[in-house]
Design a binder for these strands. Structure first.
Length: 480
RNA sequence: CGGUGUGUGGCUCAGUUUGGUAGAGCGCUGCGUUCGGGACGCAGAAGCCGCAGGUUCAAAUCCUGUCACACCGACCA
């Protein structure tokens, strides 16, 4: 192992100085995103979109393995349809964008550009669910949705963003609850084992749950700056929507029943999570499993006889081994290329120059640690594959360390306040369950409840806020 | 939606106070020398000064309006 030869990139803001600026610098300089002429509507550039495609590919496989089918529903929702479920419309109406003209004619009824598709799925389900034989319906849709947010940030808060939304209908509440948990677990597994982002699985409080849901489950992640990111959600709806939309099926008992519903989703916000979990002052660091380019081959002194050929040989060998690999034969200097691919977070850099060629070697450099090793060409594929695994493990470990280091068990509100003011992170406490206490935590300590973790731990006997007996443990933090 | 700040070649900005030929660095293109951590020389291209009105002989500069972006709040995947 060689020494760390990386040097800090000048063009991006230091993350310890201004994390928000560092984040936007990475988004634009790593060529993930560009601004469009409308606020909150961003252009996903090829490199950024490729990350999303890799996320899609892996998640889509897992959805299909668990029996889900992809569908596509319209992008416009008639106002009357959106209004059918009261809580739901109350939650989304303030941020809807409306289509009011068709050509040059004003429409009889205005259409909302979907902010989410529960209502459309319900309208459709009403048509196709009649019998217990029609259940379950396990549908998923990959699409974009529109929410007219007041503020916008790349990946974290778009007005239009890409996501998947699963919408399922089940004969019994038990089945629906099981589905809700199954999908939460798929998300958690995906985030940890593919994105190398450690998650806390939990349930949202009444205040934080999705409008119209009976229960909202969440996977919460801690970013490098110790703020929380809700990385995915899974909702159990009970039969509320079914009742509002009059969806019924005949059971084996020849009686009419309401089906029970779920929905679950993750969005391109995950990319924001990846950036803020793994990135450093040299730019992006991509988890190998979703990196569009897993290894970049850089020929050194490429004008010299045989160098490009030797580099091409490495590329085709790695391709054959299943590695997503690229070569850079542009005229930029070696140093420029090294910095460039660090900025873009490519997990491994493979260097080969005249000296290596005569020794039958090449040099491999890890993005996450900067460690370099010179290896015999015989073990090229094995080393690259092994190092990609090592990088994944190291990224996960580092993120987990960060979360552990900045999670504190607190007994009193003052303790939470001090913790948030001094270092910040997740405060783990007991909570009595009263909304008033939750509100007070926000007012006094500036934190919102992140989740009631599924893995409960009795860290005290009384509520952190009011001091009354409490049975639930809960995480608090500042959220994105 | 409130507070603050900013809009000038692709990027970072100077020029605005005091109106008078559109500037610099980086990047880009070409040629040559370089090539194991952001190389160098020479030559070149590139701007309706965010947008719309107004004042003036004359506006990047003054006035009015508007749009966008950034940060901080309130709201949110």
């Amino acid at each position: 192992m060689g020494k760390n030869n990386m040097k800090e990139v000048k063009e991006i803001t230091n993350m310890d100085v201004d994390f928000a600026q560092w984040f936007t610098d990475v988004c634009t300089k790593a060529e993930l995103i560009d601004y469009s002429s409308i606020k909150g509507l961003y252009i996903y550039r090829p490199y950024g979109y490729a990350i999303w495609e890799n996320i899609q590919k892996i998640l889509d496989e897992r959805f299909k393995e668990t029996g889900h089918e992809n569908v596509y529903l319209p992008m416009l929702i008639p106002e009357s349809l959106l209004k059918k479920e009261e809580d739901h419309v109350e939650g989304f109406a303030p941020e809807c964008a409306w289509v009011t003209y068709g050509g040059s004619n004003k429409l009889e009824e205005r259409y909302c550009i979907r902010p989410t598709s529960e209502t459309l799925f319900c309208e459709h389900y009403k048509n196709i669910i009649h019998s217990y034989n029609d259940l379950p319906k396990l549908y998923n849709q990959w699409c974009s949705v529109l929410r007219w947010e007041k503020t916008a940030r790349p990946f974290l808060r778009h007005r239009e963003f890409l996501w998947q939304e699963g919408h399922t209908m089940h004969a019994t509440s038990e089945d629906a609850v099981a589905e809700t948990h199954q999908m939460l677990n798929i998300y958690a597994d995906f985030m940890e084992n593919v994105l190398a982002m450690p998650v806390i699985k939990g349930r949202k409080t009444e205040k934080e749950k999705f409008k119209g849901a009976e229960e909202t489950y969440t996977v919460e992640c801690m970013m490098h700056d110790r703020k929380a990111l809700q990385a995915g959600t899974s909702h159990y709806f009970g039969d509320g929507f079914a009742k509002a939309f009059d969806i019924m099926y005949s059971g084996k008992d020849n009686q009419l029943h309401y089906p029970h519903q779920t929905s679950w989703g993750v969005s391109t916000r995950l990319i924001g999570g990846i950036i803020m979990t793994h990135g450093d002052n040299n730019g992006l660091i991509l988890p190998p499993k979703i990196a569009p380019v897993q290894a970049v081959v850089i020929p050194v002194a490429q004008h010299k006889e045989g160098v490009i050929d030797a580099a091409d040989e490495l590329v085709s060998r790695l391709k054959k081994a299943g590695v997503r690999v690229q070569i850079d034969t542009t005229d930029h200097s070696f140093g420029w290329k090294a910095a460039q691919y660090e900025m873009k977070g490519v997990p491994l850099r493979v260097e080969i120059g005249p000296r290596d060629i005569s020794n039958g070697e090449c040099c491999i450099c890890r993005r996450d640690t900067g460690e370099k090793q010179t290896i015999n060409l015989d073990i090229l594929e094995a080393t690259v594959l092994k190092e990609l695994d090592n990088i994944h493990a190291a990224l996960f470990e580092r993120a987990l360390e960060n979360r552990k280091k900045h999670t504190k068990v607190c007994q009193t509100l003052d303790e939470v306040k001090n913790f948030m003011e001094s270092e910040g992170g997740f405060a783990k406490t007991m909570w009595c369950g009263e909304p008033d206490c939750e509100l007070k935590m926000k007012e006094e300590a500036g934190v919102t409840s992140r989740c009631i973790p599924l893995e409960q731990e009795q860290v005290s006997d009384v509520c952190v806020c009011c001091g009354k007996p409490a049975k639930k443990s809960i995480y608090w933090g500042v959220a994105y």
